[in-house]
Every structure is written in structure tokens, then in C-alpha cells.
Write a protein that binds this DNA or RNA. Structure first.
Lengths: 108, 108
DNA sequence: AGTCTGTGCTACACATATTGTAGCGACCAG
DNA sequence: CTGGTCGCTACAATATGTGTAGCACAGACT
């Protein structure tokens, strides 16, 4: 896919249940990571890419498109990409994941 | 990949930070969905597959392998697959995601 | 014995998604 | 006008996921 409309519920989610759509979006590679990296400060496209182990711009742009269409991420001229209000709330959930990981996988 | 050792940090995660490993695991397609479907009752391989829109057994087995090696999911003869103690805690986080989705995407 | 039905799971060819590199056009500084 | 940044696209190579078929095992029933 070099080009795609990206406004359909991604995979599976035939039920239309919001959670399914969300799980599909988050279940795409790099999506969670992107949200995580944006969690405390806005980042430019290139800076974000660098933080995400130099993920290919193709994928990064694709994910950002989806995240923007989902209202999780916004773009501001000058600052770059940042979490929306709603995105921030989801970011809080990610902090819970972090706590979980630190607790259960300290040794890894 | 028909076969793989599946015990390395998946992608990127060169830092070794637990959260990165976790994000990589959860960022694989179907992984979140599997955890979600197991959230309140154990399911057999086939039942789980049915709940996950008939995901291919190849992938399901792959994910279950990873989830078991990560200590998130266990298999019990008779009942099938179920969340471990640690997995339950992660499941709670998924409930937060659900709440988020219901709140912000009620209309979708 | 034989055939149902269910289980977990593997094989494999086909389709789709991701990666990596190159590079464009726009902007700004010197 | 050169050299830096920016967001982003093109495209071929590769990795990953899909879908169907089917195996080996177990228990129930005839």
C-alpha cells in the first residue's frame, strides 16, 4: 500500500464496537510506540522518526495519518506533532502499561 | 516465517527498556485483541480463534507462543488458554482502553 | 471395530504490510 | 546560490499475515 484511504475500521472489527476499532489501530506496528514517544512533548516528523528507531517514513506517515483521523494526534505548524486532549488521556493509559512492564519485567 | 524462536525483543527495542518490549509485543496484529477476548474467561484455541474473526491459526499460535513466553497467558488442559495473574492486571488496563473508546468514539 | 465430533496445531501458496534508501519541493540562514 | 532543515513520497526488496487443507489425538456413541 503506497496509498490508501485509511478511514475504515482497519481489520476484523465488523461489529463496529469502538474498542475493536481502537484495538485494530493500536495493533498496527509502531502505533503504540508513536503515542508513547509523543507522551510528554510534541515532536517534529523527523525527530519522531529518530525516536522510533528510524522507522521508515512511509509507515510513520501512514500511522500519523490514521492517528490524526482518529483525533488522537494533531499537527501544529512550528511544533510538529502532538497528542490531542483525547490522545493525552490515552497516553495516561500507556503510563499504566509502563508501570506494569517495570513491575513484571524488571529483569528483562 | 513458518518457524521462529520468538524470545527476542521483537523490533527496535535496542534499549532493553521493558516498556519497549511490551509495546513491540502488543503492537503485533491480534495480540491486543487476544488479550481482550481472554479478559473474562478462558477459551479454547478454536473458540479464541472464532472470537478473533477467524484469525489464521498460524498467527494465533504464534501470538499465543509469545504471550505464554511473556508470562501473560497460560494454558490449562481442559479449559484452554487463560490470562495469568500478570495478564489479568494488563487486562485491567485494557478495560481503561475500552472506557476511553466508548467515551471518545461513541458515535463511530 | 468404526465413524462421529471435538481438540490443538502445522503446511504451504498467495496476499498484504513493512523496510530501507533515495530524493523531491519548500523553507530559512549565511 | 549553497547548505542546512523540514514534511513527505516513490519504489523495489523483504517480512508478515491470510486462508484452506489436513494431521494426530482424544472421548462418546453404535
Amino acid at each position: 500500500m503506497t496509498k490508501k484511504t485509511v478511514n475504515q475500521p482497519v481489520r476484523g472489527s465488523t461489529t463496529g464496537r469502538p474498542i475493536m476499532v481502537l484495538l485494530d489501530i493500536l495493533g498496527q506496528r509502531w502505533t503504540l510506540r508513536i503515542l508513547w514517544e509523543l507522551r510528554d512533548s510534541p515532536l517534529s516528523f523527523r525527530a519522531l522518526r529518530q525516536r522510533c528507531d528510524q522507522v521508515s517514513p512511509t509507515v510513520l506517515n501512514d500511522r500519523l495519518k490514521i492517528l490524526r483521523e482518529s483525533g488522537l494526534v494533531q499537527r501544529e505548524d512550528g511544533t510538529g506533532y502532538r497528542l490531542s486532549q483525547a490522545g493525552e488521556e490515552l497516553g495516561t493509559t500507556l503510563l499504566a502499561l509502563n508501570r506494569w512492564a517495570e513491575t513484571h519485567w524488571a529483569g528483562r
